[in-house]
Nucleic acid binder design. Sequence first.
DNA 1: CCGATATGTAAGCCTATACTTACCGTAAGC
DNA 2: GCTTACGGTAAGTATAGGCTTACATATCGG
Lengths: 106, 106
Amino acid sequence: MAYQLQPLGALGDPTRRAIFERLAAGPRSVGELARHLPVSRPAVSQHLRVLKRVGLVKDRRVGTRRVYQLDPGGVERLRSYFDRFWNRALVAFKSAAEQAEKESQS
Amino acid sequence: MAYQLQPLGALGDPTRRAIFERLAAGPRSVGELARHLPVSRPAVSQHLRVLKRVGLVKDRRVGTRRVYQLDPGGVERLRSYFDRFWNRALVAFKSAAEQAEKESQS
DNA sequence: CCGATATGTAAGCCTATACTTACCGTAAGC
DNA sequence: GCTTACGGTAAGTATAGGCTTACATATCGG
C-alpha cells in the first residue's frame, strides 16, 4: 500500500491508455500502434518505454519489428490493488451508513 | 472500453493517489487529509474536487466540516475494468506463447 | 451578532512532460 | 553491399496542471 504504484501514474495519460487498451486486443508492433493514433511514431515509442518500465507491457523482437503485448503480471497487480480498495470502500461505506442512521435517531 | 475512463486520469497524480489511499482507511475531513500531506489545504480541496468529478469519492456536510469517503461504485468500475484487461492479457499471453512455440519448431 | 473554524474558489506561477523533428542503429531483401 | 523498412534516442518546445497565496462563504458557539 505504501508502494508508489507507478503503473497508475503511467495510465494517467490518455494516449498511454489508448495504447494499453489496443494491446488488450492482442500483440502489436510499434508502427501498427502509431498508425491508429493521432501522435507520431516516436511518441508511441516513448509511451511504450514508460509502460514497459512500470511492468504493464513486454516486448520481443520479430525480425526488424518489435512486438509489444500486455504483461499479465502488471495487470494482475492493478487488479488486486483495486480489489482491496473495493473491499475497504464497502466497509467504510457501511459504517458511514450506520453512523448516519445513528445520528438521525438521536 | 471506448470510455475515456477518467478515473485513471485522476489517479495518475501521486497526491491524489495518497488521498485516495488514505480515504480507504475511512472517511476523513479535508483538514484531516491536508494535515498528513505535504501540500496546502486548498490543494487538497482541488484534488478532492477532481476525485469527486470522476466518481471516486463522495462527500457530505458534517457541521462546518465536509467529510469525504470512497465511492464504492467508482472503485467497482475500476475493479471490473482491470478484471477484463487481465483476462484479455492472459489470452494474448497464451496465444503469444503458442506462436513462439510454433516458430521455434519450424 | 461576532469571532472562530472549516472549506471552497480565483488568479497566477512554474515545473513536469507529452510532442515534434532530426538523427542513428539494425535487420532483411534483392 | 546497398537500400529500404522499422524503431529507439536526443534535443528543444509548448502546454497542461499542480501548487501557493489571497479572498469569499458558511456553520457553530457564546
